[in-house]
Design a protein around this nucleic acid. Structure first.
Length: 424
DNA sequence: TCTGGGGTCCTAGGACCC
DNA sequence: TCTGGGGTCCTAGGACCC
């Protein structure tokens, strides 16, 4: 039997900031989302102040000032770099590794069955702390859902070892009794609300429910969760990430935008970024969607959401073609007099680059296509080598529209020579 | 005044086929 | 008056995840 360990970095983004500023460990720390909008990570001291995940920053400014909470804008290049180092270490400690998100990974631990899993996990935890300075909690069980349960309990064990094992039926039942139904992996807020209205409040209540009722009301997804709680394996470990199926670039604006030209610059910027992304994955798109929206929270302004999708006959990852279509879409959905707050582009129906049917009516020779490929390659190489925005299309008038408000950004300690930390 | 971004999967219903 | 049965494919929307 396979044993699954879920390794999850504690307060990951906040922990990354603490690596290079050790004095922060004694202080509450929060990290904000893009545009400094919401709280997306809190150190344990910040959690103790009652700061909730996802709250708008402006709502907690008073707590921030009162307790001198350290605030950071999100620094994704730093977190991404630390993440890949963590995953690199984990790879050496297991048979199979699924990198589930930037701060989590599922490990299969078979090879070490002659030693206790808890000891093994303890070793992993120690090494990551020592080499990278990142604290992790580890949940051990027979499948992913139960390892998530174990991890949830491990996280709560702040004064202890932060490693929890759920292998026997008895351990399972005890664990599920202290877990709210909404804390189960796969049970989101909507389903939790429904279940609670049906008298199912704890994870154990769900565990004890008739499976036919589960199938009927929660569908196959719910049934899988139910079966995993009972120890079956329904969700495989996925070692090699499959090719992406869609790619999205969207941003909220720092202020309201109503002017078409302003909106157009932003859309061109997002289209540039999105096309760069799919080219770097050697993918091409056949469906391009552009959307713009008003502020969904502000009830005083006219609400508006507009989106337009174009299906292409021949797939592409050409910068200029994608931009052209994106602008065309924007023309379709733009209404004057609206205060726009967010916009984005979605490239979907992604397939492997270079496989496509020729468009019968669009006479393009192989030479034309190769020329485009070369132009795109030069574009990407210039921006990679000399920095993003070194070259851009004139319509964008490069203003880095995909980076918005970031008032409290920490240096890129691990990914920029200019920002390397200095040791005295 | 101020509220992120980027993904996945499943289902129901419509359009179409023989 | 009365109109079948069994498929596939696509899309939009809803749910979930971090």
């Amino acid at each position: 039997m396979k044993i699954v360990a879920l390794v999850d970095c504690n307060s990951f983004y906040a922990s990354c900031e603490e690596i290079f500023k050790p004095y922060l460990r004694e202080k509450p720390v929060v990290v904000l989302s893009n545009n400094d909008g919401c709280v997306i990570a809190r150190s344990s001291l910040a959690k103790k102040l009652g700061i909730k995940m996802g709250v708008p920053f402006f709502q907690i400014k008073q707590i921030i000032n009162q307790h001198q909470v350290n605030v950071f804008s999100s620094n994704y290049s730093l977190y991404g770099n630390i993440s890949s180092r963590v995953m690199g270490v984990l790879k050496n400690y297991c048979d199979q590794l699924e990198v589930y998100s930037v701060d989590e990974a599922f490990l299969v631990l078979n090879k070490y069955s002659q030693r206790s899993f808890i000891n093994r996990a303890g070793e992993i935890q120690k090494v990551i702390k020592k080499w990278l300075g990142v604290p992790v909690s580890i949940g051990i069980a027979k499948n992913k859902t139960l390892s998530k349960v174990a991890n949830h309990l491990a996280k709560k064990d702040e004064l202890g070892q932060q490693i929890v094992e759920i292998l026997t039926k008895k351990q399972t039942e005890i664990s599920l009794k202290v877990l709210d139904v909404g804390d189960i992996w796969g049970i989101g807020s909507r389903i939790a609300y429904f279940l609670e209205s049906q008298g199912i409040k704890s994870a154990y209540d769900l565990y004890k429910t008739d499976p036919r009722w589960i199938r009927q009301h929660l569908g196959v997804v719910g049934e899988r969760t139910y079966r995993e709680l009972h120890g079956e394996v329904c969700l495989p470990i996925i070692e090699k990430a499959e090719a992406k199926k869609q790619c999205r670039v969207s941003r909220s604006f720092e202020n309201y935008v109503s002017d078409f030209k302003d909106l157009e610059k932003r859309i061109v910027s997002y289209a540039t970024r999105a096309s760069e992304k799919i080219r770097s994955d050697q993918l091409q798109t056949r469906q391009i969607t552009v959307f713009i929206r008003s502020n969904k929270f502000n009830k005083n302004n006219t609400p508006y959401y507009g989106s337009k999708t174009y299906n292409l006959i021949s797939p592409t990852n050409d910068l200029f073609e994608i931009i052209k279509i994106a602008i065309q879409a924007l023309h379709q959905i733009y209404r004057s007099g609206i205060k726009y707050k967010k916009a984005g582009i979605l490239l979907s129906d992604l397939t492997k680059e270079g496989i496509f049917n020729q468009d019968l009516f669009l006479k393009r020779t192989e030479r034309d296509i190769l020329k485009k490929v070369r132009v795109n390659r030069v574009f990407d190489q210039l921006n990679q080598r000399y920095g993003s925005g070194t070259i851009c299309v004139a319509k964008e008038n490069y203003e880095k529209f995909y980076i918005t408000r970031r008032k409290n950004l920490s240096p890129a300690y691990t990914s920029s020579f200019n920002d390397l930390p200095v040791v005295n």
